[in-house]
Amino acid sequence: MLDKPLIRFLFPLSLLLLAACSAPRGNYVILLAEEDGTVGQASVSNAQGEATLVAANSVVEVPRQKAPKKARELKAETVAKLTAETEAAQPPKPLNFIFFFGFDSTELTGDSDVIFTRVLENIKTRETVDISLIGHTDSTGSIEYNRELGLKRADTLRQKLVDNGIPSSLIDIKSLGEDSPLAADEGLDQRALNRRVVMVLR
């Protein structure tokens, strides 16, 4: 038989352990690892205080009218159960495609047909799409000219998408001109990398 002091010691300890394993209730925030395994950071604050989340699968509970509790870790199974419904409704991941252009040209380079075919294949796998096109140029020519050229390049792809049955209203186009180079704008090869349109398929 256990003596009383030991029970006195073990009982609260077991309660503490139970609380640590139990699923959260009420208002709470769980930090999750991203798809590539990286873990960001978040914090929860109200008039009564603040708590920070840094570890994957950790939770901060916020009791009514009280400060957020210190973060505690949850079992992966517990987290999976809680998030299952929203995970299942998660939209497909946005995909990026890059199309390259010749010098001062709004014509796509030869290999772009292969990429465009891939785009069309991916569109087919999605129930609904919306697309962003962002045109870029190298730094040859004036800033205004390059803004315009970037827009024309993006428009080349918009037209190609429309020709393939994508409604124009679902395509958002813009130009960053020479502002956002992919490579240092030196040498012919690197300049060629900057003459591009980035397509984001959502």
Binding site: G26, N27, L31, L32, G40, A42, S43, V44, R64
Partner: peptide
């Protein structure tokens, strides 16, 4: 219950 601020993550 409060405001959540985020630094690039999944929540």
């Amino acid at each position: 219950a409060g405001t959540v601020t985020v630094r690039g993550t999944r929540l």
